[in-house]
């Protein structure tokens, strides 16, 4: 059974432990600016919303890539960027309608969540279980994926 990140913004306190853990794991430094998961702050509402790639079925990023640099890891279900193949053209960054694959000026390549190979650090670091790593059919994920449908270029005929 594939597992996915499930995010419950109601539980998030905005402590940014997930961003720290992500940047340490992936970049070797504590720098939230380089994190693949991002906590958005809604000052007026006093809310925090952690957000990252859902490894969506449509995989816009993968299909847009001109050099086949993004591939599915069949063990984890994550779409992973092969740094060696990526030329840094950024087409995936404008194609992903969720804004969750981004260009990194330092490496000249793009970065996105890869579920840390199946053991996501953000979920482990979150002190309130706002981020959990759960079976893919659990609630929450479907809701996130439902948005993807709204962005489809193609209308599938019923039946």
């Amino acid at each position: 059974m594939l597992r996915s990140l499930s995010i419950d913004p109601d539980k998030c306190t905005g402590c940014l432990q997930c961003e720290m853990a992500c940047s340490l794991e992936n970049e070797g430094i504590f720098n939230p600016a380089r994190s693949r998961i991002k906590v958005f702050t809604f000052h007026e509402e006093g809310r925090f919303v952690p957000y990252t790639c859902t490894q969506c079925d449509e995989a816009w990023c993968m299909h847009a890539c001109p050099v086949d640099a993004i591939k599915m890891n069949f063990q984890t279900g994550a779409l992973e960027v092969n740094e060696k193949t990526c030329v840094g053209c950024k087409v995936c960054t404008i194609a992903c309608p969720f804004g969750t694959i981004n260009y990194n000026r330092v490496s000249g390549k793009v970065i996105k969540c890869d579920l840390c190979g199946g053991d996501p650090e953000c979920a482990k670091a979150c002190p309130t279980q706002a981020i959990t790593y759960v079976d893919s059919d659990a609630t929450g994920l479907e809701k996130m994926r439902a948005w993807a449908g709204k962005t489809d270029n193609a209308q599938h005929a019923a039946g």
Partner: peptide, 16 residues
């Protein structure tokens, strides 16, 4: 701008 640019597509194409 380089961060979260794609969401502009999401907003436009979702006609939200």
């Amino acid at each position: 701008m380089t961060q979260h640019i794609g969401v502009l597509r999401g907003l436009i194409q979702g006609r939200f």
